[in-house]
Structures are given as C-alpha cells and as structure tokens.
Design a protein around this nucleic acid. Sequence first.
DNA 1: AATGAATGAGAGTTCATTCAT
DNA 2: AATGAATGAACTCTCATTCAT
Lengths: 203, 203, 203, 203
Amino acid sequence: MCPEQSSNPRRESGDERRIAIAKAARALIIEKGLEGLRTRDIAERVGINIATLHYHVPSKEALVALVAESLRADFKAQALRHPRADQPGLLQLRIEFNEFREIVAEMPELIGVLSELVDRARRDASIADIILPMQAFWTSQFADIFRTGIADGSMRRSIDPEAAAVAVTAALSDCWRPHRRNQLDAVMAELERAFSASPVSQG
Amino acid sequence: MCPEQSSNPRRESGDERRIAIAKAARALIIEKGLEGLRTRDIAERVGINIATLHYHVPSKEALVALVAESLRADFKAQALRHPRADQPGLLQLRIEFNEFREIVAEMPELIGVLSELVDRARRDASIADIILPMQAFWTSQFADIFRTGIADGSMRRSIDPEAAAVAVTAALSDCWRPHRRNQLDAVMAELERAFSASPVSQG
Amino acid sequence: MCPEQSSNPRRESGDERRIAIAKAARALIIEKGLEGLRTRDIAERVGINIATLHYHVPSKEALVALVAESLRADFKAQALRHPRADQPGLLQLRIEFNEFREIVAEMPELIGVLSELVDRARRDASIADIILPMQAFWTSQFADIFRTGIADGSMRRSIDPEAAAVAVTAALSDCWRPHRRNQLDAVMAELERAFSASPVSQG
Amino acid sequence: MCPEQSSNPRRESGDERRIAIAKAARALIIEKGLEGLRTRDIAERVGINIATLHYHVPSKEALVALVAESLRADFKAQALRHPRADQPGLLQLRIEFNEFREIVAEMPELIGVLSELVDRARRDASIADIILPMQAFWTSQFADIFRTGIADGSMRRSIDPEAAAVAVTAALSDCWRPHRRNQLDAVMAELERAFSASPVSQG
DNA sequence: AATGAATGAGAGTTCATTCAT
DNA sequence: AATGAATGAACTCTCATTCAT
C-alpha cells in the first residue's frame, strides 16, 4: 500500500531493482490495467529515474515479460508449499481450493495480473510463450486431481478430467474479480459437490 | 438513383452512422483489444473522417459506452429468440448452451467484446453501469434455470443456484477464447453432468 | 533569414505547408547539419505545432525524403533554364559553370544540402534512391558536354568524358564549401584550361 | 604470464587505451557515420565500460578531437614514406596518386573519416582547428608539385597551382566513396592528362 | 584504472480532441 | 453532416555524462 515503505537506497543491485520494478509494475497493473501501465509511473513508484528503469529493463515489452516471469516464479513457489501426494482426490481438490484462497489473501494481485496477461497473450506471442504454459500447468494440476479422484472413488466416475479442469480454473479466475470475490466460497463449495462421488448427499 | 443506397453514402442519418461506428469498433476491439482501439482506425473503417466520427460520438468514453449499448441490444435480442418456459430445467440448460453456441457461431465477437468490457468495467464506472447489469442478467438466467431444475427434479438437489450460475457463465466465457474454443463442447457436456440429477449415470 | 517573414496564417493547404516545411528543413540542415536536424526546430520555424508537422510529414525519414524531393525539383528547374543545344562543347561548359554560379548565388543551400544527403545516401537506401540518380544525372550532363567538345574540336581529344565529368562535379561540390567559395572562379578557370583543346594558349 | 599481452588486458596504460579508442571510433565512424557514433558502441568495441571510456576521454567532443589527431598522425606518417625531391613534377604527381592508392588500400577508412570530419569542421571550430590545416597541407603538397612541374616543363604552363590542387584533392576525395571507387584509376589518368605538358599525346 | 548504477535533457512519435470552413 | 488542419499532452526510448565504490 505504501509505495515508499522500503529503505529505498540510492543504489541497489540490479537484481533487487528488477524485483522492485516487477513488484511496482504488478501493483500498477492492478490499479490501472495493463493498458494503463506507464513506465514513468513504475519508475516513480520504485523511486528511480525513468532512464534508470530503462537501464534495468530495456523496453516495455521486456518489462511485461519480466512481470510474467515474476508471476511464474510466485506461482511455482506457491504450488510447492502444499504437497498432496497419496491423498484422496476430493481432499486434494479442497487443498487446492485452500491454496487458491491463500493466494487471493496473500498476493491478491497475482490472479488479477495473470488474467490481464492472459488477455494480452491472445495478441502478443512473447507473452503467450510465458503465460499460456502457466495456465496449462494450472489446468493440468486440476486434471490430475480429477483423475486421482475418479480412480480412488472419491469423485464422480463420469467426470471428463480435462473439461472439468477448464471449468474449475475458469470459475476460480472469475471469482477473483472484486465484484465476485464474496461468492468465492459458495462457488468452491458448489464445485466440490459437482464433482464429488457421494450420491448420499444428493438424496 | 436510389437515395438510400447502403454502400457508404456521403451522408447518412445519425443513427445509421452510430450503428456503423459501433460495428466497426466491435470488430476492431476483437482485432486489437480494447487497449489497442484507436478512434482513427474506427473512422477509417467506417469510411469517414476522424472529425466526423467525433461529431457523431463526442468522446472515446461515449464510444465505448455506445459499444456496450450495442452489445446489450444484441444480447437481449438473442435472449428473446429462445423461449424456454414450462420445460424441465436440464433441458433449458441445454437450450441455453445451444444458444451460446449460436452466438459464438453467428456473432463471434460478442462474447469477446463483452469480456474486454467486463475487464474495463472494473476500473471504469460508466462502463460498469452498462456491462455489469448485463452480466448479472445473464447469470440470473442460469440461476433461474437451476432453480427450475431443482424443483422439477431434473437437477441435483444440492445445487446452489447462484454459485452454479457463476461457475457456468465463467466457464462459457473462458471457452470463448480461441485457445479454448475446441473444448467448448466437452466443457458443456461436463457441466450438464455436474448439475444433472441422474444418479444412475454415477453408478 | 527572417523565419517569420511569410504571412504565416493559422491554416494553410497541405501542399503549401509541405513546401514551407521542406524550406525550413533545408535552412536548418545548412545551419546544424543533417545530424543536428530536429523536427521540433522545423515546426517552430514553420510556426506550427510538432504534431501538425507530423500530420503533414509522418516521420523523420519521410521528412528527409521530402527534402531530397524538393532538391530534385529545384535542380531540374534550374537545369531547364539554360538550353545549350547546338553550341560548342567548351561554350556549353562555360554555360554550365555560370549556371552553377547562379545556383550558388540564388539558392546557396542547395549544394550544401545535396552534399549532406549524398553522405547519408551511403548508409540510407531510401535517400540513395532519390539522391544518387540526381548526382548521376548531373555527372552525365558534363559527360555529354565533354563528348560534344571532343567531337566539335573545342576540347582536348584525349578526354575520358566520364572521368572528366566526375572530376568536374567533385571540384564544383568541394568549392561550394564556405572555406573554398572564394576559389570557385579560379578552379572553374583551371578546369576550362584543363579540358580545352587550344594548344596555342599552352604553347 | 607475460604482463604486456596485447589481447585486451584488464588494465592498460592510458595511451594504449586512447589509441584503441581512437581506432574503434574510426571504424565506427565508417560504419555508422559521425552522426551515428555512440560512445557506448565505442566502449563496447574496445571492451571497456562506458564510464571507463569517459575516464580516458572526458567528453564526446574530446573524443572527436582525438580521432582527428589520430588521423593527422597517420597522415603525416604516410606523407613521409615517399620522398619525391628532385623529380619531375609529373612524376611526383604519379607518385602522389600511388600514395593515395596505398592509403585507400591500407587504411581504407582514413579518407572516409577525414571527409566526415571536414563536414563537421564547418560547424565545429575545435574540429576545424585540427582538420582544416590537414586539408590545407594536403592541398599545398599538390600545389607544390604543380609549381615544380610548371618549372621543369613536365606540366602545362597555364596551370594555376592552387586551383589545380583544389580540383585534384576534391576529385580524389570524391572517388574515395564506394560508388565512385571503381572510377578512381580513370579519374587519376584523366587528371594526369589534364595537367601534363605533352601536346604530342594530344596529337 | 575500472565499473554498475543513476540521471537530466531531449528525441521522435501518438492520440483524442478541437477549430474553421 | 462533413472535413482538412491543427494542437497539447503524454508516451517510450536514447544518450552523454556523473556518482559511488
């Protein structure tokens, strides 16, 4: 929230600056959208000159790629925090949902920036190269869970793992949007019921 | 000879021009994205001068609102073509899916422009005023269907109508994107199974 | 000299503006060199906004091409003023020299701008396409004169017309430079002697 | 082991660095022109940091002066290699032409950089101070030759030594340009005929 | 002697908008 | 209703130069 919070020394190493630039860019993408992103705003928020920004990140295209990369790094790091091996599929789904809740809570901009980049990936191949594999990876994680759940009997046998995974990631992405945020829990609960095997609860 | 020749006459009534402008703008939004939309490109495509465009649509903000309005008009028109009263909920869901397939086939840009505007609505209140009600209307249609289906027994009783409706619209919107288009049918089929009452198919 | 001499109305036709832009650009190239040419300086001298300049001439590359074109137009116009058909070669050479003196007097910047563009033509194909033919045309005019002079006996028989033409145009171009200007007449006189047939004056 | 290894050591004496910088600058002036010369490109080619370059050569103006100086040094060295005292003027002219051919062959960039600097000298007094004397020296060498040739009867008596020298240096400079290079021999031959006394060959 | 980081000034270009006709 | 010309504000990017180490 407070852009000048960090010590902000006159001189920092290149890596630190690049990280700070990516962070500022992500915040600004959330505020103004990717199309409203201005290099001068980023520089100002980082506390450096516009020319210094270009020293660290040579072009706006490279800047967006940097943001995409930083997104991927966070995403992977998050994915590694919750091992779910050897657990029933339905439980794994719940774990994954909790993980998503954590992401929304701890890095509220991650999903938002991601969906901006997904949009741009449609028209920008260099973004697509970074973003689409991420999206595919996320989807494939859910597909794996569905396959596990079908096999261990915790999920409905008729599930099409790939199609279900698409539906789930789409729903989660959509619920990230502020006007949907309050429906996140209800949607997650509905998705659990939709894929759960338990015919009992359906009476 | 015929004064109403539609092939780009020098002078057209204001309404005709505004419709042509909205149409050109929608096509360009699909091509270049909302952030890549340029008033000059629209004018060129319509075949008028940039100043003439501003005569008909006073500002870019008004232009985007015009696009949103034209979207709403098409959306409502489409919604009225398929009466579904007095049919089982599950069948209504299928009808709605078919309707979506028609939209994708006949007006492939409608959903794309809509999702661009939904994104922008987050940061632009004047767009939100037009777009969010549309989205809400679309979602509420699905919620109604789910309520009907629960009541008539064609759908799973445990459905949360609002949450399910959000999941469905999110999945459909996501499948509109080119790289998901080929998964549309599979996702629709999966959604039908997910909300259908039939315990038989689940063993 | 006085940049604001002309009436400088608020609005002019595109052609008039383009001519004024080319004129201002030529003057500035003489003052600051082609590498010191700034679009903002041109706009200021013409009395228009920088964006207006870009309205008339879309890019700096196009601007330099415009200057090259304007040079060619002036050059051709000048070439047509002095018919030399049916005269002895040596006399034609004198006429050509007088013509050059007129150019230096009336359009002192023409040769200077030309030689700047010749330099740039070495590294810029789009300039080369316009400038090199001009230079070739100028050289070929002298070669023709030498051929005539050899045939009619007014010039030395051993002349290599092409080589002599190169030497003459090089010498004239060089003498255009301010620090050589005062030697122009002496050099021209020397060139006349160098190619004249009259062995008497040498004997 | 050998501390004076010339293959780009980390630390070199100031003079060596300055020589390397001048050499790199000359090559880059040929490639991109004086207006396309960038200090960063020079540093990169020398293999040093941009700040290090500024340590050795404090400003770009000083850099261009350094190039001019290095040009003068090479020029003088070349001039001393061919003594022509006590020979007929026409033969001296041929020797001088051969010398020019050697320069073009051995240091092809020397004339090119020189003519770039001559252009700039028009607008830059500090360059003019170095370059114009060089040019004057070169011209005066030819003027001396012409005076000798007139005196010893090997050249046409009507020659104006100064004017002829200007014409010759201009022609040679012009023929240095790539698109004229193939005409160099023909132009030199023509110049020899133009100043030779031999009326016999004109027969 | 050398360097990574930083910077002010300024470059060309773009764009929605307005003016005069 | 239409248009060519004009514009202010803002954009990304470049470059010679300087600072701290």
